[in-house]
Structures are given as C-alpha cells and as structure tokens.
Computed example of a mutant assay.
Amino acid sequence: MPTGGDGKPGYDQDAHRQTLLNWVDKVGGEASAAMVFDFTTKGILNTAVEGELWRLIDPLRKAPGVMGWWLAKAVTFVDNHDTGSTQAKWTFPSDKVMQGYAYILTHPGTPCMFYDHFFDRGFKDEIATLVEIRKRNGITATSALKILMHDGDAYVAEIDGNVVVKIGSRFDVGAVIPAGFVTSAHGNDYAVWEKAGGTATLERS
C-alpha cells in the first residue's frame, strides 16, 4: 500500500483500491461472480485500530476500502493464511482482533473469518455473537452504511438503520448513539447496539 512519510499507509488509498477493482473488471465485472479480498480495508484497519480510527472514512464519507466503492465485490477480513498464522506477513494487532471483527461483521461487504482466530485464539464465542447479530438484522454485502463518528479513539457507524457499532478505546459515545437502540454485544474496546423491538435482550449502556 502507498505509505506516507511516517511509514504508515497514506490516507488516500484510491489507487490501491482501484487496482483491486480493475482485476474484478478484467474477470467479468458486475456480470461475474468474481469478488476480491479487500486488502485496502485490511491495511487501513490494521493502522486505524492503533488510535487512528479517523482513517475509516474517505472524503466522500464512505468506507475507505474496496467496500466503499463496490460493496458487492469486497471480501473483508482481519487476517488470512497469508497475513496471519505461521506466515505472519501482515498480522493484525493481536490485542485488537475483536475490534476488527466488530467492524467487518457489522459492515457491508462479505466478511471472511480466519480459522486461527475462531478456533485457536479464543475468540469463537465473541465472533459467533457478532455473526448472529449480522444474520438477525439481515446485514448483507450491499447494506447501507452511515458513519456517525470518526475520531482517533472512536469510530461509530450505523448499518441499515438497525445496527450501530463502536470500536476504539473511548467509552462514552452515547451522544451519537441513536435513541431506541439497546446493547447486544461488547468486548475489548468495541460495542454493538440493535434497534429496540427486535430480538436484542440487553439493556442500553
């Protein structure tokens, strides 16, 4: 990915995501079933969870990776067999893994879970809870995303008007959580709310 002077990914990753979408076009574009691993989102998310969550929005207020341009073609992921595991070429920050899953499992795109995280790292129950929230609310690859906050220590987004997710170390984000939502999941620096009246059972926090 293009980097800035500090060695971190530059804010503008349009060229990177365009390269990925050019590949999709070459194998059939919209008419084909081809999808692409959203390495742009993975790279930005790797850095964003380290106190730079402002990176998770592009100048048009969309998601900054492939999913911000072509939702249906983006396969989102935290790590895979190339970036994580024994190869460990581009590993997601180990203490922030669940922030990554809270992001991809509530957002549009097609999320892909890493075997090691689910079975070997002790995240199975938390990931499964997020999967159930996604299924219960019918979140799909082309769901509507509305970004409510994008500061260094807090990112908050609303999906399809039914789910709100927060990642980041800031605890108090109540001012941007829409009325009528209740907490359905929470963990290390992440929380998810669902619209009241559905199947969520926990009280709003």
Rank of each mutant, 00 (worst) to 15 (best):
I127R: 08
L130G: 10
D25L: 01
A33N: 10
K62N: 10
Y101G: 08
A196K: 11
T91I: 10
R204N: 13
T83Y: 13
A154C: 02
A15R: 12
F92P: 04
G152I: 04
H107C: 09
V97F: 01
T201P: 00
K166R: 15
C112W: 14
F171A: 15
L202V: 02
Q18W: 07
W193T: 00
E50M: 13
K73M: 04
L202Q: 09
K124D: 09
G138E: 08
T3C: 08
K124A: 15
W193K: 03
P9A: 09
R136S: 15
S85L: 03
S205L: 07
D12C: 01
Y190V: 00
Q99F: 02
I139W: 07
K8H: 11
Y190W: 12
T76P: 08
E30R: 14
T140E: 14
G197H: 04
S205V: 06
D25C: 04
D125G: 07
S184K: 05
G10R: 07
A74P: 05
D14Y: 08
W70K: 13
K124F: 10
N162A: 15
K146S: 15
Q99K: 00
I167V: 15
P111I: 11
H16D: 12
V192Q: 09
P111W: 12
V165G: 02
G51V: 06
I57E: 13
M1R: 08
K146C: 00
A31S: 13
L21Y: 06
K26V: 01
T129W: 00
V164P: 03
D14H: 13
D125A: 15
G65C: 08
L145Y: 02
V36Y: 01
T142Y: 02
V66A: 09
Y155G: 03
T183S: 05
S205T: 09
A144I: 06
V24L: 05
G168P: 13
F118P: 01
F92R: 09
L56V: 09
E52G: 03
G68T: 00
K96Q: 11
W23T: 10
Y155V: 02
M35S: 07
F37V: 13
H81T: 05
A200I: 02
H16V: 04
V156Q: 06
K166L: 06
G29P: 08
G10E: 11
V66Y: 03
T201S: 11
G7H: 06
V173G: 00
R61G: 05
D38K: 03
E30H: 07
L20I: 04
K42T: 01
P108T: 07
L148I: 01
S143M: 03
D12R: 09
T47V: 12
N80A: 00
G65P: 08
P178V: 02
N137M: 11
L145H: 09
G28S: 06
L202G: 12
K26E: 14
K8I: 01
T201W: 07
H107F: 13
T76I: 06
V182Y: 01
